[in-house]
Design a protein around this nucleic acid. Sequence first.
RNA 1: GGUUCCGUAGCUCAGUUGGAUAGAGCAACAGCCUUCUAAGCUGUGGGUCCCGCGUUCGAAUCGCGGCGGAAUCACCA
Length: 625
Amino acid sequence: MNIPGQPAAKKATAGISGPCCTFANIYQNKISIRTMIVSKIREAVDQTLNQLFAEQLAGCTYQIGPTKPEFEGDYTVVLFSLAKPLRKSPDALGQELGQALVEKHVHFFSGFNVIKGFLNLTITDSYWLDLLLLYSADTTFGRHPKNGRKVMVEYSSPNTNKPLHLGHLRNNFLGWSIAEILKAGGYEVIKSCIVNDRGIHICKSMIAWVRYANGATPSSTGIKGDHFVGDFYVRFNEAYKQEMESLIAGGMSKEQAEKEAPIFKEAQQMLVDWEAGDPEVMRIWKLMNGWVYDGFDQTYKRIGSDFDHTYFESDTYLLGKKMVEEGLNKGVFQKREDGSVSIDLTADGLDEKIVQRKDGTAVYITQDIGLAIEKYHQYKCDESIYVVGDEQNYHFKVLKLICEKLGLPSAEGIYHLSYGMVELPTGKMKSREGTVVDADDLIDEMVRISAAHTEELGKVKDFNDQELQELYHMLGLGALKFFLLRVDPKKKMIFNPEESIDFHGFTGPFVQYTHARIRSILRKEKPDESASVSMSLLPLEKSLLLLLERFSTVIEQSVAEHNPSLIAIYVFELAKMFNSFYTEHSVTNAESMDKKQLRLRLCRMTANVILSGMALLGISVPERM
RNA sequence: GGUUCCGUAGCUCAGUUGGAUAGAGCAACAGCCUUCUAAGCUGUGGGUCCCGCGUUCGAAUCGCGGCGGAAUCACCA
């Protein structure tokens, strides 16, 4: 057992309760406690250092962190960096500093020790109790006040020719979560989605449908719209491959066959007709995209993704093309001999990049330039985050550079939240090899497993059918979301479909279960606001409070790093700590009335933080499970 | 080949920005339910932090050089 910064192994100080205090007489402390504890310690240390060694202090930095569990103390000041400029040994400095801190801040520091250059400080129990009494009922605890900044988070960005898969799930969960985390960090957030609804790949599924469907539709076949269209995309590739093979058998080279296959030429022609606005092509395009959107909506609803604004590539590419004109006039872009338009980025360590084809049509980056302008024009965000896989790192480097060179005001705020691919133990998911993990299938599977677990345990036999379905969904999605969010977004991750996602240990259901346990206590008995509360803390009670206090800092870090996994790790540690506390100490049968009141408040505050922490990950927590 | 990223326990991952004896979960093993939910708790075993050199009070973390892996360098998206 090793919880960062927690004195879990320490001896219990006392089983008897000390003097008591009530909510009212510590209300005035609320403002001072709102400051995070590390800042408070730093302030006190700075002040004391200044008084002791005023002149030698210029430019000194030092670290403060939670004390390791094997040492006595709550927070630790690392003295090495101060020792040299102050010309003192770390131990002597620690003694002097510790002594002065404890003397000057009797209500804040209750003791210290110095070990090998580390000054370990113990915070008074009353500080932790003040925190508990002030915030145990505050459901917004840890959230930061509004900072006046506005940020857009673009995520999901689906293609309308295939259904969502596991990789999209990581994207959707990340995007939604980072948006919530930014809100908790004080930002105003706009969630957006760009739908890649045009291009040759879309025409491919359309051609296949025209050729082979005989008028079949999702409703006539009972297949979900996005899967229905995706099947025709697969069908296209099958037919394409067959036609190429017979052309090659007839003596044609592979490269030539790729270009000459009739079905491929039909798709190319359809793209031209689409750009020209051919009514029949537009009709099919709208019809089929409509089916896909129906399918996406169902999936988005299940996973809880939503958007404040949806953009369509079929709209933004035109604005991008207008910017190509402007860029040419400004001399940022160059027209080549063959008529294509490019930008030379070799001076920036990149390559020459095409921004418009020789036939005048837009490429991928063109529409993204248009989109950047459209977004800024509409919302004027300070920052624009793109949640897109790390395979597009180069693309976003180029995009930001181009926007800078065009002098767009939105350029500076462009931030690519680059996340790693989800891979199988055998490597990348490949649709051609049928190894793609379909989102809908995976969700079904997760819900099915949670239903099986729940039934086996038999704790909610009195639930009606609707309540059961809601619980299964909450647990299945909780497990899935937690699984995908608990690892650093930057890193690629491995998903093994053979081993189902866990429900024990470092998982969503573990945290959900902890919440249900706490709620079970609080259903039996609630904190009495007028009752007195024990003034002394046992080690596990204090450890819980130390962890709870860190919530706000964790949100801050999570915002700074655009990293939801910090929240997942934190919420797991908190749940683990609560479970240790729970098995060690009884709440409803506490050794005294004021101990019971203390623990009921601890329960309430822990439940609140678990609930709001999990909400930042897009995960709901149940009352019972 | 150029650029960027990665390499930590059998597996999946942390490691607070250079700090104390490198940690969790899973898997394995041993305990704990007449007491608030055992989807839990407690304990045991498990490490050449890819290798080497360097920087300094101190390196998994920083630098250089290897080895191994990934992404990208499209008039695809």
